[in-house]
Nucleic acid binder design. Structure first.
Lengths: 243, 243
DNA sequence: TAGTGGTCTAGACCACGCA
DNA sequence: GCGTGGTCTAGACCACTAA
């Protein structure tokens, strides 16, 4: 049996070659790359393809261009780390921070939506939601208190008693055919509330960062309403801001 | 005297035409746009140009594409509001929130940098920084406590006694030829500290959102080290997260 | 004026979704 | 199999920078 061949586009290959070139020549910040015409020839591809490769590198801030002057290597020539603007599962966030992700399930229940949920998820009158409440841990320490809700109709069959997937995204993709593509997150500084203190044994008045998110699919359909309370002692939240 | 003619690219014109088409036909969410071949013909441009126009619209999430099916209008067909990932001056943020921006200057002083500043701004040994401390107000209410530092050598002449520009960015661009292009922001939930309570008359233990930012120019040179403490009662901090 | 990146054209073939 | 968007080529002219 053959594994599906992934054909890599020429522009992606070209991008890789340019990166290797930077490595080989040990180019540092503000060093100039060869002009597009030279890259075309040396890689045997068209200018369009070269420019696509350069566009990818520019997006990752590995290079920058100045019209009339040339293309240059950014300083330092390593990509900056991803920030919050990149949508990732909490599992991945915990892994990226260098911890071992864990989950303690607190409850899965079908409940009436709040007014805010009705609006944000565009629920029909009388429609209920299923709410998943979990405590996420990072190498054993309390990392986040997560409350995620999806419309009842998204889940076929009875409300599950347990979910084995570590990541909520994985569960929703595999069992509900929900494919979140982007999210709008509101960031709110907050303190532990009564419920969390009981559920998770957290301290009173501990500072938390609430990520109040609505996840949407490619067609901008709202899928998930989530309230994730993060422990700021374990996570740094970064955002890369561009003009 | 003639004002500089701004030639608008064909792809930008094409983008505008497509937007007008959506308006005219009153296309709603998930409605299909004409295929690229038709757009080429009706607008009299090449496929490349059409695709550039569509790429711009896709970036703004006004449309989405599915290979093999077509191009569709997003629901709702309005661009989502900008979030934190878009770098803006605090002045603009206050204006966008619908308030009247104001500034109370607290101090401008040449000081020794902290160790963190030396690292983040890549300061030479012995180099000092100039720190601007301001209280920003929104229609009279306390909006943010801002502490911005730049390397001493960036400011020609003596340390200014006052700055008239409302926006720090404007001041730095016009007087120091510093052009911030992007910033890396760390988001930290925090409480009012002693200094702020004295300076700004804030309450003890009031929740704040600290945006700890380093601003860089196009060449990735660090320019500004800033610590902005925002009043979360006045601002919602949004981040648009993409997969 | 020479050299660079920015925009645009015309045409080709490929990969995917669907009937 | 057809129609869609995705990728790629070859070639042209424009706009900006610096000598």
């Amino acid at each position: 049996m053959k594994i599906k061949e992934k054909t890599v586009s020429l522009s992606t290959q070209a991008k890789k070659k340019i990166l290797e070139y930077i490595q080989e020549k040990e180019l540092k910040g503000d060093d100039q790359l060869p002009p597009e015409a030279v890259l075309m020839e040396s890689m045997g591809v068209s200018r369009h393809t070269v420019r696509e490769a350069l566009a990818l590198l520019e997006q990752e801030r590995i290079i920058y261009k100045i019209q009339g002057k040339g293309t240059f290597v950014s300083i330092p020539p390593v990509p900056i780390e991803g920030g919050l603007e990149k949508l990732e599962s909490i599992t991945r966030m915990i892994e990226n921070a260098g911890y071992e992700p864990g989950t303690r399930w607190l409850s899965i229940a079908e409940v009436s939506p709040t007014q805010d949920m009705v609006e944000k998820l565009a629920l029909k009158p009388g429609e209920t939601v299923v709410t998943f409440t979990r405590l996420r841990t990072a190498s054993g320490r309390v990392a986040a208190y997560c409350v995620d809700s999806v419309r009842r109709s998204a889940i076929s069959g009875p409300v599950p008693l347990e979910v084995t997937e570590e990541s909520m995204f994985e569960y929703l993709e595999e069992h509900c055919q929900l494919y979140p593509a982007y999210a709008v997150a509101e960031i709110v500084p907050t303190l532990t509330d009564q419920r969390m203190m009981l559920d998770a044994g957290m301290q009173k008045n501990q500072l938390l960062l609430l990520l109040h998110q609505i996840h949407y699919d490619r067609q901008r359909e709202p899928l998930i309403y989530s309230m994730d309370y993060f422990n700021p002692e374990l996570f740094k939240f970064r955002v890369n801001r561009m003009k």
